Simulated assay, not measured.
Amino acid sequence: MAGLNVSIAFFFFTVGLCEVIRKLSKRIFPPWMYICLVAELLSSFQMCTCCLELKMLREIGPWGGGFGADVNLTLLFLLFLVHGASFDGASANPSVSLQEYLALDSSFGATVTKVLAQFLGMEAASIFTKQYWSRELTDFHMIQNLMARSCSSSLGTSASHGIFVEATCSFFFQLVILRLQNSSSVYRIPIVALTVTALTYAAAPFTGAFFNPALAFAVTFSCSGNSFVEYMQVYWLAPITGMLIAFFVYQGNIPRIFQKNLLYNHKNKYRIPKGKVNPDINEKRRKAEKTISCSRPTERTE
C-alpha cells in the first residue's frame, strides 16, 4: 500500500501545482490568452500526468501491489471529478476543441491555439512524469523504469477493431458532453466522470480507452508494436470521426459546414399573432441571442 499512497500524494501534488499556477496566471495574462493557451496547457499537463501514473498502477498494481481494477477505476472516477472541478472551462481534448469550432463557438485561431497547447501540455507531462519515475520512490517506479525501456503499445487488438472501439468511445463521450453542456456542474461533472470510467472499463483492454488524440500521442505513440499510420488511424482519425457523428446526431447539422438541419424539424413553440410584425423587435431578439451565445463561457471538460 506504500506505493499506492505515494501515487495518491503525487496526484494531490500535481493538481495543487496546476491550481496554483492557474490562480497566478489569471492575474498575469489577459483573459483570451488564459482561456485559449494557459488553461488548456495546464489542464492537459494535469490530465496526462495523472493518467500516466494511473496507467502505471493499472499495469503493475495487480501483481506488484495486490490491488486490482476496482482500485484503478475508483481512482479514475475521483480524478475526473477533480479534473472537472478544476479545469476552469478547458477541455484538454482536441476532439472537443474541434467540436466547438464546428459549432461556431470558437474561431479558427483560438482552436489552433488550444490544440497546440493541449499537445504541448501532454508532452511536458510525459517528460515530467518520467523524471518523477526516475527518482524510484517506490518499487512500482523501479519496475516502471525497467519496463519503459521497451514499452509496449496500448493497442491490444487489430487496427480495424481499435478504430471501431475508439470511435465508439468518442461518440458516446461527445454525446454526453453535448447533452450536458448547459447543465449545472453539480450534475455534469459526476456524469462525465462516470461516463469516462465506464468507457475505460469497457475499452481499456483493447485500445487503452483514450478517445483523446493528444493524450494518446503522449502516452503510446512512442511505444513499439504498431506503425505511426496505425496509431494515427486509431487514436486520431477514429476519435474525430466519432465526434463528428455524435455532433451530427445531436445537432442535425454541422453549422461550420452547412446550416440545414437534416435530422430534426424545429418548430416554433410560440404562436405568432396575425398581423404586421414589428421587424425591430425581431432584430433586437436576434442580437440579444447572439450576444448571449458569444459571451457565455464554455464549461466543457474531457
Rank of each mutant, 00 (worst) to 15 (best):
L17T: 15
T207Y: 12
P30K: 12
A2N: 10
H83K: 08
K260M: 12
A167L: 07
R286H: 00
Y34N: 08
S154F: 06
L215M: 13
Y201M: 10
K284Y: 03
E283I: 00
S25C: 14
T111R: 00
K260Y: 01
L175F: 07
L178F: 06
E59L: 11
I163R: 11
S227C: 06
I28E: 05
E123M: 10
S126E: 03
N278K: 13
M122N: 14
Q181K: 15
K274V: 03
S158I: 13
G64H: 15
G3F: 07
F80E: 04
P31I: 02
M47C: 10
N5A: 13
R286P: 00
L37Q: 09
V6S: 12
P239Y: 05
L78S: 13
Q46A: 08
E230Y: 11
N93C: 14
A238C: 10
P31A: 09
S134N: 09
T168A: 09
N278D: 10
F248A: 05
L54A: 01
I257F: 09
Q46R: 10
F247S: 08
I281S: 01
N278Q: 09
N261G: 13
H83F: 15
C36E: 13
L73M: 11
F67L: 12
E283A: 02
F12V: 15
A288M: 04
E19K: 04
Y34P: 11
L199P: 07
I35R: 14
L237G: 02
D88A: 15
N253W: 02
L17Q: 05
N145E: 02
G121I: 06
M142W: 09
A39R: 15
I163E: 02
P213V: 02
Y270H: 00
S227N: 10
L194C: 08
F221I: 02
T49F: 15
P255Q: 06
D105L: 12
A69W: 15
G162H: 02
I245V: 06
S43M: 08
L237E: 06
A85W: 15
K269T: 02
T207A: 13
L54I: 04
V96R: 06
R271F: 12
G68R: 15
R285G: 06
A204Q: 12
V249P: 05
P255G: 03
L146P: 00
S170Q: 08
N212I: 02
M122Q: 08
I292E: 08
A39T: 06
S7Y: 14
R271S: 06
T197N: 07
